[in-house]
Design a protein around this nucleic acid. Structure first.
Length: 491
RNA sequence: GGUCUCGUAGUAUAACGGUUAGUACAUCGGGUUUUCAUCCCGACAACGCGGGUUCGACUCCCGCCGAGAUCACCA
């Protein structure tokens, strides 16, 4: 049975750089019909951020990464918050003490700093093992006693070679110089990540540890602990970093990495986010670019995860989002896309009914890159735009026409459009074609004039559709208003 | 500095000893009766360097260079 986990620290939001370590384990578990677990690693009380866990859960759910066990949903391995699992870690720690592989260390922080400085000055690699205190030789009973007094517990390392396999990076090995006496249980009684995750993954029967490559250098120490505990380790899946757009550093909050939910609030669809992120550093060998969750569940494979870092490219995310926007409209219809648009319309849209909003959406949707574009692109459908003649006169097609010509063009246009009995898109197009023939103007001239007069927006959908949706009364009123404005301007 | 990892166009990637080194985004140009977008067509653009192995290397080996990660009572 395949079991994977996402194990974040509740220190803030999930950003673009680390959400892949939730997506990939989810896919690994689900494509094998296994379980995906959410475990909260809150052993560092200093870094704990109120509300972070809720935000993490909200983000996962938004992306469609539902977990089978864990925080918020419970399960057979409760609790799923490490801060509540203290006794479990202590139980395993005692095993280590009894085996003579852990010792309580009364050395104070200042002394440790001195060791570090001295080694640095002597240009010797710092290893705590080289400064191991005499207490490390105490009997298990005495270690237990000292530990109960409040000293942190350290692993008693043994220098030796390690080699192991990483499902992404391949075969790896290191020499004895990287093993050290790392802290297992802190002075506050809570475990360090280094110890806690090993215990938890074992107890929760996790089969694949999916995490960033930054843990690679700690691997020998983890392997030593697995060995001392006498337990088998899961498979290791190390994910290369997501790099910031600039430079070669990994994407981090410090460099302004945005939260996943920020993108949601800007109008990125979860499908697009999942699609883009899944394909950042992974591909199935085909030339497919668009993957749904369903597609990913069949196409994904650990072996094809890239082993070099991948740069985050917001432009391609936007492109992916545009594809999904159109895909949802084309395949599922306007209702499906409309359901995603709540909160993105201009404020004035609220006084119009849903069917009108859907009409607007139907003619504008293929111009959207993000849903928040609705706010800037659809305003003139909900309120009369401010008449700005400089925009009209300054248009590259209209600037060669005199004001009189513009007025005359608007006059014949209004006349012809007024004569339309049935205000349909087809009849409107027919009228526009006739006007073109009658006035002898180029489409660029006549249509630019009408378009600007109707919208005063930098762009709009096809004219006949725009007028159809705006309706006869408003379309004609706006054309009249602009004609009057030009007449007044000329006077 | 020690240890470890990575290295195909601006970006993401394909190739698993033999191709004019493919695709997508971006950029530039063109087309579809106006704009913007969609759609279509086209262009530009890459194997970090040097040795080997081989009839033949992006692919295998070695060295170098470059980039990154990590050396916490953080995860």
């Amino acid at each position: 049975m395949t079991r994977t986990r996402f194990a974040p620290s509740p220190t803030g939001y999930i950003h673009i750089g680390n959400v892949r370590s939730a997506i990939y384990p989810y896919l690994i578990a689900k494509q094998a019909d296994g379980q995906f677990i959410l475990r909260i690693e809150d052993t560092d009380q200093k870094r704990y951020v109120e509300g972070a866990t809720d935000l993490i859960m909200e983000t996962l759910r938004w992306l469609g990464l539902e977990w089978d066990e864990g925080a918020g949903v419970g399960g057979p391995n409760e609790p799923y918050y490490q801060s509540e699992r203290r006794e479990i870690y202590h139980k395993w720690a005692r095993k280590l003490i009894e085996a003579g592989r852990a010792y309580a260390d009364p050395t104070d922080g200042a002394t440790i700093d001195e060791y570090r400085k001295a080694d640095s000055a002597a240009k010797v690699p710092y290893l705590y093992r080289n400064h191991r205190p005499s207490e490390a030789e105490l009997s298990p009973e005495e270690v237990l006693k000292l530990w109960e007094k409040g000293a942190p517990l350290r692993f008693k390392s043994e220098p030796k070679d390690y080699s192991w396999h990483d499902e992404v990076i391949g075969d790896l090995s290191t020499g004895p110089e990287v093993l050290d006496d790392i802290i297992l249980i802190k002075k506050d009684g809570l475990p360090t990540y280094n110890f806690a995750h090993i215990v938890d993954d074992y107890e929760m029967k996790v089969t694949h540890i999916v995490r960033g490559v930054e843990y690679l250098s700690s691997m020998p120490n983890y392997l030593a602990i697995y060995e001392a505990l006498g337990i088998n380790h899961p498979k290791f899946v190390s994910l290369p970093h997501v790099l910031a757009p600039q430079g070669n550093k990994k994407l981090s909050k410090r460099d302004g990495a945005k939260s996943v939910v920020d993108y949601r609030d800007e109008g990125i669809l979860p499908e697009a986010m999942l699609n883009y992120l899944a394909c950042l550093g992974w591909n199935d060998g085909t030339e497919q670019e668009i993957y749904s969750m369903k597609d990913l569940l069949t196409a994904f494979s650990i072996e094809r995860i890239q082993n070099s870092g991948a740069r985050f490219d917001e432009t391609k995310l936007l492109w992916t989002n545009g594809i999904w926007l159109r895909k949802i409209f084309d395949e599922e219809g306007v209702d499906a896309l409309y359901a995603r648009t709540a909160g993105f319309w201009p404020a004035e849209a609220s006084s119009y009914d849903v069917s009108y909003q859907k009409e607007v959406l139907s003619i504008i949707y293929d111009r959207l890159k993000v849903l928040s574009d609705l706010g800037t692109m659809t305003g003139y459908f909900f309120y009369d735009p401010e008449i700005d003649l400089s925009l009209l006169f300054g248009n590259k097609f209209l600037k060669k026409l005199s004001e009189k010509e513009l007025v005359d063009l608007l006059t014949v246009t209004i006349e012809r459009l007024s004569a339309i009995a049935d205000w349909t898109a087809d009849n409107l197009q027919e009228a526009l074609n006739e006007l073109l023939a009658k006035t002898g103007k180029k489409p660029a001239e006549l249509f630019s004039l009408i378009r600007i007069a109707l919208s005063f927006a930098p762009f709009s959908p096809a004219l006949n559709l725009t007028m159809k949706v705006l309706g006869r009364e408003r379309s004609l009123a706006r054309l009249n208003a602009v004609r009057s404005a030009i007449v007044n301007d000329a006077a």
